[in-house]
Amino acid sequence: MKKASILMILGSLCLLGLFQFPLWNIMLGAPQYPEPLGMNIHITGIQGVSEFDLQNIDGLNHYIGMKTIPKADEMWEFNIFPIVIIAMVLLGALLGILGFFGKIDYRFFLGWFLLMSILGIMGMYDFNLWLTDYGSNLDPHAIIKVVNEDGTPMSYKPPLFGYKKLLNFDVSSMPATGAWLMFIGMLLTVIAFFVGRKSKNSVSSEKKHKLVTP
């Protein structure tokens, strides 16, 4: 159980990587942009991959009437996400410590994982809502208005995950370093759960054994 608890602590600490590394990355390449423009989505705000990328993305987007990329203080998410992450790190570490001293059961580790997964899915859902709004809530006076075959306005929503062709742009959207660290951390907590369960089983079988032998 001690080993499991250490894994649990390490796993939850991995989330701290989100304060250093981006959670998500969206790249926009086009014939005119052999070096693609890109944005890194951090839990604290959106940054350009290169110094002037956000400005240049906004500059292009004004043709199709998209809103400018929100600043950190323009979205509540960027205030809430860091708090949620810190809370989950503290909770995970606390569970690990309690587990280490035998105060709680390994099943709490799985509980943390499930809670984190639910929060993650909620975050993705919210992110998707924003992408949809960003890509389809367009200025009616936009310079270039592209419509689908059925006459509805084309959406410029970037993909939530993966690749999409938007007019002349190749858009890819992928988890970034911070997210990969988070996934590793979450995986560690699942391992912690199994390691904890295994050690519990072996301890109880040892106990049974001891009971039998005298």
């Binding site: 070096e35 110094e51 002037f52 400005q55 240049n56 500059g59």
Partner: peptide, 10 residues
């Protein structure tokens, strides 16, 4: 005419 190019793109 003092003209400034606001672009910051290559």
């Amino acid at each position: 005419f003092h003209v400034t190019n606001q672009e910051q793109d290559f």
